[in-house]
Design a protein around this nucleic acid. Structure first.
Lengths: 258, 258
DNA sequence: AATATCGTTCGATCATATAGAACGTGGATG
DNA sequence: CATCCACGTTCTATATGATCGAACGATATT
């Protein structure tokens, strides 16, 4: 996972930073009291209190007894951001379709600020039901969908993104070298789809295809993932790629024609 | 729709208020530039610029060219708030089931700060597909689900909520009188389910049931809605209520036993 | 080429976010 | 039942930093 600008407190509104830190803490702790947040962040109790009161007043945080929790007003903003992604409506159905046809897990993912973000997800009958949901951020360089997106960025953008990438290693198979990644991205661009062979999670394979909009701009990517013992051989290397490519094609026709 | 504290700038972090105003503006305008936001809010350009830069730095806002948009990091917070609602998983399936069985639109709604908020929604084959999505806020006093929730609050909480309610009238049928509402809530409590007869939208009917958790605390409400010409007679007054009551019962058994 | 328009940077000011102490309250402990 | 924490909340002084307006630079427009 990467961050916007790690050290960057150049010229920014400090209070906003503090406020969002506060929200992130009550998210991480799944609800917290004033003192807990103050301890976690090293701020004075009164400061945290004022922040949480304000957020509660504005409806962005919910207070029950003395515990504060992330409020649903963030969902309003989040859904707004989600639904305004290109191809949002069309991809919903396609993801469900792929999940049903394959029995595995399918997802639609877009890029934002160096990360890949889940927009849709569906489970087939055999799908592994664990793990991250809508809105979660996963690394671009260690996922099938992520690599499919990277492979279709123009050079400038790609280099910008790679600049921010820390090439964190998740398993022995994660690509942790910039050059190696560039080589694989070239392959993917040519081939039209990408693989993830236990690069993010031990035992998990995936296939990904990019979804391109007008002018070949990459909108996001579709992927199917499942246990490595089921995703192998022809199914992994041919059937699933073909299914995804077909779906991507249908989608692209519909998206550009609206 | 109601607000936390309309005039309230008592003792709150002003900057947070400004920051959230900024985000709400770029949401409402579906993306906006620095000058547009500054004009909309009456702040100096430089101020808005600093705010948007900060938010962009932190990944909460996305900048393309000179336009800022609400970022997907809000979705991360929003989904967190959404999924941690009691019975989140269970209600997903039930809502889909109801939509399929009735052919209409079904939803699961919870209360937060004087408003009802959509948590799940599903469309049956005949469903009216217009209107608000997940995360949207609707009035408690003018919807079936909202009234089902109100009817099951304890007095203190109910009065707190009614305090904030402005009894906005949406159609000729909206209940705009506090006493009238209290009477109807008493009926609903006794009967176990609620109706919405074009109280929120002309031509739209709905039936709602509360979902109660441990100790009879109301968690949220399920409702089915559709055009008034289809939701009438026995179907409206008996079949749908029975279906909903049955589902609510199942849910309540599963929620309390975990 | 000239001009307007916008994003961005800069500097001074004044508002206000912050910390810390003080107050009030509920729950635990003896 | 009395005492004592521990916590949320209010208050106040101070210094930080958010704000504005002006100036700069880039870009598009005519």
């Amino acid at each position: 996972m990467t961050r916007g600008t790690d050290t960057g407190n150049r010229d920014t509104v400090q209070t906003t930073r503090t406020m969002l830190e506060t929200v992130e803490v009550i998210k991480r702790l799944e609800g917290a009291t004033v003192t807990e947040v103050a301890a976690e962040l090293g701020y004075a109790k009164s400061t945290v209190y004022r922040h949480l009161s304000t957020l509660s007043d504005l409806g962005y945080v919910v207070k029950t007894d003395n515990e504060y929790r992330v409020g649903l007003r963030f969902l309003e903003l989040g859904q707004h951001a989600r639904t305004r992604q290109a191809g949002y409506d069309l991809t919903t159905k396609k993801v469900e379709e792929i999940a049903e046809r394959t029995g595995e897990r399918a997802q639609f993912i877009v890029r934002e600020h160096g990360d890949a973000v889940y927009i849709h997800r569906a489970f087939g009958d055999d799908a592994v039901r664990t793990d991250p949901g809508i809105g979660s951020r996963i690394p671009l360089h260690a996922t099938a969908a992520g690599k499919a997106i990277l492979a279709n960025l123009d050079e400038d953008e790609l280099f910008d993104v790679l600049e921010q990438t820390d090439f964190e290693g998740f398993t022995d198979h994660t690509i942790t070298d910039r050059e190696e990644l560039l080589d694989e991205l070239a392959e993917i661009r040519e081939r039209g789809y990408s693989f993830n062979r236990e690069e993010n999670l031990k035992g998990l394979h995936a296939v990904g295809v990019p979804i391109l909009g007008d002018g070949g701009v990459v909108i996001g990517a579709l992927s199917v993932s499942g246990p490595s013992h089921r995703l192998r051989g022809d199914r992994f290397h041919e059937d699933l790629p073909n299914l995804l490519l077909g779906t991507a094609n249908e989608l692209e026709l519909n998206i550009t024609h609206t």
